Computed example of a mutant assay.
Amino acid sequence: MTEFRRYDPSGAREIRDTVQDAYARAYAESIASGDPFESLEAAMRRFDAYTNSAGFDLVVLYSDGEAIGQAWGWPLNDNSRWWNGLRLDKDEPEFTTEDGTRTFALSEIMVVREHTGRGHARALHDELLGGRRERRATLLVDPTNENAYARYRKWGWSRIGALRPNWEAAPTFDVLMRALPL
């Protein structure tokens, strides 16, 4: 039996060990690559920082009491650094103007390896974004990750530019957007 559980910033910090375990199982290959950005320690430092974002929202998918996937994000506020370094494909004045109600940043979607290919990622995506009050959502994707890219396009996401986040050893990602609600 599967079920979703939703956590606010405080609740997310309380289940940090669960988040870390699911992350380690979902990204075992990336962690093993030795890339400093992909290390479990770096990922959890980012998670800890994200839980300080106003409106942080975590959805965990459990199967028979075990966390098998998770997704999280937060609304961008007027002093968000999310867009720092953004290179838009088309010049759009005011594109990065935020007020806490315009854009939801979907930061992570992951499913542990032994549960992939069953629609869980889409279910997590829809659970996290369903009912959001923001008008649009954004996410960052590795442009070489063809599987993820194809999935996001199928789910209604479109590329609008590129960005290298201000995290140590961060790569450059493609920036995708989609309208909300789903």
Rank of each mutant, 00 (worst) to 15 (best):
F4W: 10
D174V: 09
L176Y: 07
A170W: 09
V60E: 03
L58P: 00
M177S: 12
G156T: 04
R159G: 02
W155P: 03
S158W: 07
G34A: 04
T116C: 01
H120V: 00
T172F: 06
V59T: 05
D48N: 15
M44G: 04
P171N: 10
F47V: 05
V112M: 09
R5D: 01
F47S: 10
D99R: 07
I68W: 04
R113P: 03
D8M: 09
E114R: 15
E29T: 10
A49W: 08
M177H: 11
D17C: 05
T51Q: 03
R135N: 11
A162Y: 14
A170Q: 08
R113A: 12
V112R: 04
R5M: 12
G69D: 04
P9N: 08
P75K: 01
L124T: 00
L139N: 00
F173M: 08
Q20F: 09
Q70D: 11
R159E: 06
R81E: 14
G73V: 03
D78E: 11
G69N: 06
N84Q: 15
G119H: 10
R135Y: 03
A150C: 11
R87D: 13
A43E: 01
F47E: 02
A148E: 01
F95C: 10
E38R: 09
G161V: 00
R178P: 01
V175I: 10
D35I: 05
R153K: 11
S53R: 14
